[in-house]
Structure formats: C-alpha cells, structure tokens
C-alpha cells in the first residue's frame, strides 16, 4: 500500500510538474499505519525517474529499508533536472527531514544542492551517481560503472569471437554514466584489432529510440556482428529491430543494468549478457549509513564507495530477480 501510494504521488507529481510546491507530502498519511517505531523522523528520498525499472528498484529499496528502520519517507523524482532537484532539497530542508537519500542530477550541478542541505544540518547520502566534490555529502555510494562496462565488454567480445564490425548505442549524452560506460567498452574492445566500431548513435536510454536507431543502423551497416548498448532499454529496442530484420542470429547484443526484461532476454538467448548494477545493495547501504549517522552520529569510514557490478549471462540469469542476485 505504502509503496503504491508513494508511487502514485510520484506519478501525480510528474503529471503536474508541480515540483516547486514541495510536493513531498507522502509521509503524513504513511505515519498513521504500522505501530513500528515510527518516531525516527522522515527521510527524504530523491530519485531520477521511477518510470525506469532501475530507478524504481532504487526507490522501492530505499523506502522499504527506511521503513524497516523506523522512518517515514517522502519520495520525489527530479528527472535529471537540477532546478527541480534544488526545489526538492529546499522542500526537504523546510520540512526538517532527518536525512536525504539523493540520486544526484549531474556531478557538478548537484554540488550546490548537497551543500545547501548539509549547511542546514541535514546529512545527505548519495546513491547511484556521484558529485565532483568530496567532503560535503556524508557518503557517495556508486556502482562501479567502469568495472561493469569492462566485464560486459569482455563477455561480449568473447561471444562475437573478437572479430567484425559493430555499432554502439549511447545513453543520454548529458548523463555522466553514458560516457563512463562507453569508455569502459572502448577500453576493452580497442584491444581487439579485428573489432571495428563503425558507428555510435545516442538513443537516450530509451527503448523506442533504440529500436528506431538500430533499424537505420542496420540499413547503413548490414554486416555488423554486434551491438553494445549503454543500458538494457536501448538494447531491448535493438533486439526487437534485429528480430524484425531476421538478424538476431548474426548480431550479438550487450546490455547494462540487469532489469527484468533484459534478464528474460538473456535467458531466452536474445541478449549475450547484461551487467547488474548493485543498486539494491548500494541503496540499502546508504539508508543504513543514514540510520547509523542519525542514531549514533557515526559517519561512514570512507565517503566514496564504488560497489562492483556483476556480469549476468546465461549461467546466472536464473538467479536474478528484481535487481537482486540470490546466491
């Protein structure tokens, strides 16, 4: 129920774009249900875009963990818009929340927002993405995108036999992670002299755009042997384009994120591999750090922590469910 309500609120917020009006009111009614020690105060969770399964997992994890530890939560989504992020931070400050879990909108753009909250005495814990200054946020827990991209690229290169022309689908160009992953791929793949990147196109993390771009790329380069994609959604679009063109046997696809649809594609043999971002682990850790700081005043030993990604291929796809890998 609670989760549904929080998501309803996100939907309504997105719907009306009323970010400015400090729309983070989802806490009050949630405090009513459950007798668990809810005296802990409110943790503000600010994410990017819950219509993407990856960020949805992030929100769900944060809300569940915070409530387990006895806090109320508010959830907002800034859609990578630093202005909106600022408004949510202002809202959180005026509501006197006890901590903020933030997936920042840009490494440079978010410094000011984090500083503002910290100056107001509210600890900020960053998840998923980092800011380019240290010593302001209490923790920055990111998944190691570079390491993940390296893992994925190695598995993919092996699948194509280290030879042939390939194309790359690039994420939203303003998103730091798009470049990090692309560099990670290039770092591995440039070592294969027979692998040739013939074109890079952006599809903005989006499935429909991934399909459309892939269709044209197939027209331009009919003989490619593979596609490396910056995330799963674009890869899934590319897979559909390849299916329509009857070329899925010839072209190997690599994804990134480990979302449920992608895992299903890996199981079905349509996607060579994807890379699981440990978003659930990272977010849980961030909330636990926040809890520790609030209750005991202990700060995490190291501010910046990179959690390693896990390669998901046909061998372990069965064990993955909702971004969690069971042992």
């Amino acid at each position: 129920m609670k989760r549904k309500f929080a998501l309803l609120l996100i939907g309504a917020l997105t719907a009306f774009g009323l970010a400015a009006c400090g729309g983070s009111d989802s806490d009050s009614d949630q405090a009513a249900d459950g007798d668990a020690a809810k005296g802990g105060g409110t943790i503000a969770i600010i994410t990017v875009d819950p219509s993407n399964p990856y960020w949805k997992a992030e929100v769900d994890t944060a809300v569940a963990e915070a409530e387990k530890l006895g806090y109320d939560t508010t959830v907002d989504a800034h859609g990578n818009d630093p202005d909106k992020q600022n408004q949510f931070i202002d809202g959180a400050i005026s509501k006197k929340v006890v901590a903020i879990i933030l997936d920042p909108a840009g490494a440079d753009e978010s410094i000011g927002a984090v500083k503002k909250a910290t100056d107001a005495g509210i600890p900020v814990f960053l998840v998923n993405a980092e800011i380019s200054e240290q010593g302001i946020a209490k923790a920055q827990i990111v998944s190691n995108n570079a390491q993940g991209a390296t893992l994925g690229a190695q598995a993919w290169a092996e699948a194509v036999g280290g030879k042939g022309e390939y194309v790359e689908l690039f994420g939203n160009p303003t998103d730091n992670n798009a470049q990090v992953r692309s560099d990670g791929y290039a770092g591995v793949l440039s070592q294969f002299p027979d692998l040739k990147l013939v074109q890079t196109e952006t599809a903005n993390w989006d499935r429909a755009q991934g399909k459309e771009k892939m269709e044209i790329l197939l027209s331009a380069h009919p003989n490619i042997v593979g596609v490396v994609s910056g995330n799963d959604e674009m890869a899934l679009g590319a897979i559909q384009a390849l299916k329509d063109a009857g070329k899925l046997d010839q072209v190997k696809v690599l994804g990134f994120d480990g979302n449920d649809d992608a895992v299903a594609a890996v199981k079905a043999g349509e996607m060579v591999a994807t890379v699981l971002q440990p978003i659930v682990t990272g977010t849980t850790l961030a909330v636990q750090y926040a809890d520790d700081y609030i209750k005991n005043g202990t700060e995490p030993e190291t501010e910046k922590q990179a959690i390693d990604c896990v390669l998901i291929n046909a061998d372990n796809a069965d064990k993955l469910n909702g971004f969690v890998l069971s042992e």
């Binding site: 549904k4 998501l7 309803l8 996100i10 939907g11 309504a12 997105t14 719907a15 009306f16 774009g17 819950p50 219509s51 993407n52 399964p53 949805k56 499935r207 649809d261």
Partner: peptide, 18 residues
C-alpha cells in the same frame, strides 16, 4: 500533456508492459 502522462505512469506503476 501532464495529466495524460501522469495517468500513463499511474496505470503502469512506472513499469513497462511486455
């Protein structure tokens, strides 16, 4: 534009139907 997009998000709960 906002209302319809919000309703679409509400119906799907942010997920994708496949």
């Amino acid at each position: 534009l906002y209302v319809a997009r919000g309703l679409a998000l509400l119906i799907t709960n942010g997920e994708t139907f496949t």
